[in-house]
Design a protein around this nucleic acid. Structure first.
Lengths: 212, 212
DNA sequence: TAGATTGTTAATCGATTAACAATC
DNA sequence: TAGATTGTTAATCGATTAACAATC
């Protein structure tokens, strides 16, 4: 790799998949793995794997493959999974509460350290050892790098801005609202009704059988 | 539109966004809307909107725009949001319970009618008026078109197969596992740790300032 | 009619894939 | 060395965008 080329977003997403595969291989004490094997597990082409990795350096040994522990470390470092991430969660309804206890987060080094809700009934309660604070206490300096939005749709824009003003630079948005927060803030939207709608389009609709 | 051309997957995803915008416009009693306005609300280009719609027919009036009620109907029909969808949910943990009560679903015509869990402690409980049944009662004929997988990762593959054997043809998968279920079954993966990992990559990493 | 906006074609852009020289 | 697999280039593929004729 010579020039620092822009890394495609799909590459980043696949890197997370590779990370999971590599963690599995590492658990199984596999020492070396080929791009072919990673590709098979991740459901992509081998050349895709090599191309994706090549954006970040050369991690393999020709004729052999990739040393699992080393590659796992490197991928973790690229995704910054080798450092703790402090997460602020807004919305302590059913979804927010489920997210607060989501077992996968801790294993990937994500730690929800703040929970906010606007309902006085929720404020003061403990969820997963965290005391729920009033959303009205925002904005304030939070030392959080990530934020999760699990509030009702109409509140989304305001709460998102409160989080940004509190220093959060990346947001996971479950509200279905379209947020415009400027280019300094990354947003990933998880829209559950959208997902079901896409599935509804496909359900029972056999892929067009090419006739002729 | 003449030939039945393959519709790109991103187009389907955007259609769901347009649907939401159109529903908003309809609530506001707006009668006609331009591709420009839809595009602005959806965060895409106007030509993208027109291209996306053109895969399914001609819904606009030159010089004027699109009649909102008619277009809303048509988009709903394309996504099959004009008919009820029966959903089977497996996994009644925190996440599953939150999904069972997710307010957005009913509004989009998705109805969770079955909830399964493998834990005897959960079976027999009522969640949102639905009695939790044992996962071991699957497979059986379910009259569900969609399935939601909210079980722990290791159980994912088996439970997915049980749902498919029960007649489900589309699956929303929260387990993070990579499912291979053949081409007749659509799968959408929602992987929360992946999303956070992608955000972690971007957090505090200013977009590469071109330094020329 | 003049102005506006669609539907569609063609150009552009960017990502995926195949192919292969480098090399362990 | 012979066999294998990487890293990278070039070809392919598919989606986005711009442009504009059609037409309300």
């Amino acid at each position: 790799m010579e020039k620092r080329i822009r890394v495609p977003e799909p590459t980043i997403a696949r890197l997370a998949t590779y990370f999971r595969c590599l963690a599995d291989l590492s658990d199984q004490e596999v020492g070396v793995v080929s791009s072919e094997e990673i590709a098979f597990r991740a459901g992509v082409k081998a050349s895709q794997v090599r191309k994706d990795l090549s954006y970040f350096g050369e991690f393999g040994v020709q004729g052999l493959g990739y040393p699992v522990p080393r590659l796992l470390d490197r991928v973790a470092s690229i995704l910054q999974l080798d450092q703790q991430h402090r997460v602020a969660l807004v919305g302590a309804g059913n979804l927010g509460t489920a997210l607060a206890g989501f077992p996968g987060f801790a294993r990937w080094n994500f730690h929800i350290l703040w929970i906010f809700d606007s309902s006085p009934a929720k404020v003061g309660q403990e969820i997963n050892k965290i005391t729920v604070e009033p959303t009205s206490s925002l904005p304030r300096s939070l030392a959080a790098d990530l934020g999760i939005l699990a509030v009702p749709g109409p509140a989304a824009k305001d709460v998102a801005q409160l989080l940004v003003d509190s220093g959060v630079t990346a947001l996971l948005n479950f509200t279905g609202a379209h947020l415009h927060l400027g280019s300094k803030v990354s947003v990933r939207n998880v829209d559950l009704t959208h997902e079901l709608a896409i599935l509804a389009y496909h359900a029972r609709r056999p892929d067009p059988t090419p006739e002729s």
